[in-house]
């Protein structure tokens, strides 16, 4: 049993290290880039990987390594931002449902049922069409499509925590529902929320890339993995490195996030295996 956990942790360790590297890269990106990731240099276009440009250059002569480093910022930000939107809405709505119950619960859950009926990508597509293109809007679009999952998770957990004696006691003592929620219930549902968030970050990055493919991503010339992958796709035959590098970055991040998320789940709450449905 112990050895299993340790070995589990080994995968998680790898994931965590990779994530840390990506995170630090994003944080210090401006200091790390060897070239200006935005400046076009037609004379250096489509250079294959060389010592000068370890990952080659794209059709505009921009250094792909520099764009990959800089792109980490926006890609992670999109993922985090989307999850933040879903998290905020999920916690507020889920807590209210679980703690207040009654009509609030019924109403919100019906709304969530309705939201569930619209496929995530389709919803994101319509949201971007409503709000227009751009990083923040993509974040919102992806975030909105994640809300139902978060609300359901939080509500479900609140309901099970509520059965606990100490919450009952607090309610019996006449505490306000908000206080019950924040002081007693929330701390107990943090673990599953963290686990869901990790998986949701991965999902957001992928969905963001798909929106770029449909022409609804962030605005050029901002480096972002999804949009770079999408831009490079017509060069797959001529210059594979343009799309492969951002594509590999996305894969690496998503795999790492999942490894960490898995370990967290096993550690924090083994009952949560149904979360794999994200």
């Amino acid at each position: 049993m112990l050895s299993r956990l340790l070995r589990r942790r080994k995968a998680a360790l790898v994931g965590a290290v990779v994530l840390a590297v990506i995170g630090l890269t994003a944080l210090f990106a401006p200091a790390l880039v060897p070239y200006d990731p935005i400046q076009v240099k037609p004379a250096e276009a489509l250079s294959p990987p060389t010592l000068r440009h370890p990952f080659g250059t794209d059709q505009y002569g921009r250094d792909i390594l520099s764009r990959a480093i800089m792109g980490a910022r926006l890609s992670l930000l999109t993922g985090l931002g989307a999850v933040a939107v879903a998290l905020a809405a999920g916690v507020v709505l889920g807590l209210s449902c679980g703690v207040i119950g009654g009509w609030t619960d019924l109403l919100v859950m019906r709304l969530i049922d309705i939201m569930m009926a619209f496929p995530g990508t389709l919803m994101a597509l319509v949201v971007v069409a409503v709000l227009g293109q751009g990083t923040v809007n993509v974040m919102l679009a992806v975030g909105v499509s994640l809300i139902p999952t978060f609300v359901r998770l939080v509500r479900g957990d609140v309901l099970s925590v509520r059965e606990n004696v100490y919450v009952e006691a607090a309610r019996a003592l006449g505490c306000w529902p908000t206080r019950v929620a924040v002081q007693h219930v929330l701390p107990n549902v943090v673990a599953p929320i963290i686990v869901l968030s990790t998986v949701a970050i991965a999902w957001s990055i992928i969905l963001g890339a798909s929106l770029s493919f449909l022409g609804l991503g962030p605005r050029p010339p901002i480096p972002e993995w999804g949009i770079d992958l999408s831009n490079g796709r017509s060069y797959l035959l001529r210059a594979w490195w343009i799309s492969s590098v951002p594509g590999f970055c996305i894969m690496l991040t998503v795999v790492a996030v999942n490894l960490v998320g898995d370990a967290l789940r096993d550690e924090l709450d083994p009952r949560l295996r149904s979360l794999a449905n994200l």
Partner: peptide, 21 residues
């Protein structure tokens, strides 16, 4: 578009790009 944007920047013009249906 990104190429024109880069060339305009060289002379001090900021071309902002917005893609729309």
């Amino acid at each position: 578009a990104p190429l024109v944007q880069g060339m305009a920047r060289e002379v001090g013009i900021d071309v902002q790009l917005r893609e729309q249906p």
